[in-house]
Design a protein around this nucleic acid. Structure first.
Lengths: 209, 209
DNA sequence: GTCTATATTATGATAGAC
DNA sequence: GTCTATCATAATATAGAC
């Protein structure tokens, strides 16, 4: 509720991020986080109730900030903002840029979204659903306007689109050790976006798909 | 070393799979696994040395069986097995089918590959590298033969291809709760493969990409 | 908000009998 | 291969002083 930037709270989050990222949520203890943050371990309980509370805070903060960046492109103002394709690419760019700027949290969230918990279900039914709706909306509007192919399998496109966007940030290690690219670098972001823009521009607008 | 199918060992693995899948490796204790498997907890240490030993066994078993299925398509016999494109689709189908048949382990492995450990580094430098080589080989051979576009960004194609193949099995929850599809079902596998075959057939063979 | 102290339970791992 | 018993340590969480 408070907007005050509490240093202790912030340093706990920061420490948690770096630990969760390298060894996973479940393998990280509250004590470890507190030690890394150089704060008393009791303060974790005070600020976040428990370990899951940190993850929850992290996820909410991550998605709220993401949607603050995505908002300007979609919903309501569609008419003024150029073609759906342009908007789609802009949204892809925003999401990829955001993930690149928040590599560790992105990887943590994508990893933890594959476990089963009440928190995950909530994030899934709110934020992830909203994210899906954002892109689905762009695709569907594009189809209505005849900008994209009308018998597009929207769901499959979305699935494949999400896979393409999330994978590099879900498994940065694979990117680094297998492909020798650094998904955090602006160069990669640009390379990736220009690739995607070709891929989707090509696919969405042409026959046979 | 022994080929004998030890029931205890097998039931430990089975229990570990179901627990790792829903709550993650780090959040699962040896006792929990033993209880679920209805075996004495000391037997986990006996058979696998420790918890990581189970994960290691799981990963090796998974990849060895996968490559046993992928082998017949690639390497050496390329000449006889039809076009590179056909082989590519066949490999995609094999991989997707294998993941569908081993949903839980697939999800566990993809999740755990995003943490940093010696085991992960080993799996990455052996199996994942081999998997990448398998598909890179198909793409490159296809280019050499003029079957695919010659100025293809092979690395980017591979990255995007892997994203497309892994995402649904890395985050089955997203598939179920957001897209209402069951990635384990044969129907989905077929739908997905036919989609991918169109996508890649289109992209790899045409100009502008 | 921060700290000390502590209670309680969980966890990994092993020794040694069967 | 399997079991019982055990231990040392680690983990969560809270009460109460400052």
């Amino acid at each position: 509720m408070s907007k005050s930037v509490n240093h202790t709270k912030a340093s706990i989050v920061k420490a948690a991020i770096s630990l969760f990222a390298v060894q996973g949520f479940g393998s990280t203890s509250i004590r470890e986080i507190a030690d890394t943050a150089s704060v008393n371990s009791a303060l974790v309980s005070y600020h976040f109730k428990n370990k899951q509370g940190i993850l929850e805070w992290m996820m909410i903060d991550y998605f709220e900030k993401l949607f603050a960046k995505l908002q300007p492109v979609g919903q309501g103002e569609k008419e003024k903002k150029g073609s759906c394709f342009q908007q789609l690419i802009a949204s892809l760019d925003t999401l990829i840029g955001y993930q690149a700027e928040n590599m560790e949290v992105s990887a943590i969230i994508l990893r933890e979204l594959s476990v089963d918990s009440m928190l995950v279900r909530e994030v899934m039914s709110t934020y992830m659903a909203r994210l899906k709706a954002h892109f689905a909306n762009l695709l569907e509007t594009g189809i209505e306007r005849g900008e994209f192919d009308r018998d597009l399998d929207v769901e499959m496109q979305l699935i494949h689109m999400m896979g393409g966007m999330f994978f590099p940030y879900s498994n940065p290690q694979i990117m680094r050790e297998l492909f020798y690219v650094e998904p955090m670098s602006p160069e990669y972001r640009q390379r990736y976006i220009s690739f995607l823009s070709k891929v989707w521009g090509y696919k969405l607008k042409n026959e046979e798909i």
